[in-house]
């Protein structure tokens, strides 16, 4: 059973449908107790970091998230979820985030009028180290991205994969131990995205 954390940061149906498509049961919840007890957690989200943090506080989910990670349960952040587990985001003049992964979240900067922000579409994800989540996926495969900000981990050993956009090579997958987090949307990334989620559903949280 996958527990998908709902903190009012966008619609989560596509995440649930992707797990259903690979035959894995998934529940969507806002209940801190359910999150704290979860065997396997997906922390998705789209939208703004500031309101995401406000909702996490209001729903009293922060301690539950930190607890379930400390218990060693496999944990997957997606998109905004990946950003809010960092220390701080420069969105909206600065937002204090969860501080689970050391590092900040930065906005793409470009002078090129043809380089659109947000990045929207399929981009290459280059693995920088082997990981159980990459089983049967080739390094350099394309995944679907929609974002204006990207995570910049302070400790390079958190970077599991990299992607290039707007002249920046950024960490498109972060992770350590039982934690992994993608800037892209595996649930929207077709067969290869489903393979990634299958790998997550089987992962014991070790690497």
């Amino acid at each position: 059973m996958i527990t998908i954390v709902d903190y009012k940061a966008g619609n989560l149906t596509s995440v649930r449908l992707a797990f259903e498509a690979i035959g894995v049961e998934a529940q969507i919840t806002r209940d801190p107790e359910v999150v704290a007890d979860a065997k396997r957690v997906v922390f998705p989200g789209v939208g703004a970091a500031k309101s995401a943090m406000e909702h996490l506080r209001e729903l009293e989910l922060i301690e539950a998230l930190k607890l379930v990670i400390s218990l060693g349960r496999p944990f997957l952040g997606i998109c905004l979820g990946t950003q809010v587990i960092c220390d701080w985001s420069e969105e909206d003049g600065g937002v204090e985030c969860l501080g689970i992964v050391p590092g900040n979240v930065r906005r793409f900067q470009t002078e090129d009028p043809l380089c659109k922000i947000p990045q929207m579409g399929w981009n290459h994800v280059e693995f920088v180290m082997p990981h159980p989540l990459f089983r049967d996926i080739k390094s350099g495969s394309e995944f679907y991205f929609v974002h204006s900000y990207y995570p910049a981990p302070a400790d390079p050993s958190y970077t599991l994969a990299e992607t290039e956009y707007a002249g920046t090579r950024f960490a498109s997958i972060l992770g350590k131990g039982n934690l992994a987090a993608t800037q892209f949307h595996p649930e929207r990334s077709g067969r290869i995205g489903l393979q990634f989620l299958t790998n997550f559903a089987r992962w014991e949280g070790l690497c």
């Binding site: 149906t13 596509s14 449908l17 649930e187 990334s189 067969r191």
Partner: peptide, 8 residues
Amino acid sequence: IGKVVHIP
């Protein structure tokens, strides 16, 4: 469509 299509 949502059940069977996993691209945007």
